[in-house]
Amino acid sequence: MSDGALTKADLAEKLYHELGLNKREAKELVELFFEEIRHALESNEPVKLSGFGNFDLRDKSQRPGRNPKTGEEIPISARRVVTFRPGQKLKARVEAYAGTESQ
């Protein structure tokens, strides 16, 4: 990988090189991978990928908010959000990364 962020195209490239899938199959598989995870989450079903992490859902109730520009009070509506909890293995690997503290 170069200095940019990893994208779906990079993942498809990886499948093409390492598994010998053709480019169309590789691209489709990467699409399906993320689409199936999104589909589970929008069906309110958490996703548990052992070794990597869990995507969980949390329901937040309405709370008071403010327009930061005008100071006007506007309620922030109730919503459902996705949270990611990294698994032990990923956490341990990332913890060992001793690079700069930017990002």
Partner: peptide
């Protein structure tokens, strides 16, 4: 393929990289 995708994503994070999936 699924295992390779997850492994590669972990590798990228473990070396300080970012992942952006639109």
């Amino acid at each position: 393929a699924v295992k390779l995708i997850l492994e590669h994503m972990s590798d990228v994070l473990a070396t300080g990289g970012r992942i952006e999936i639109r």
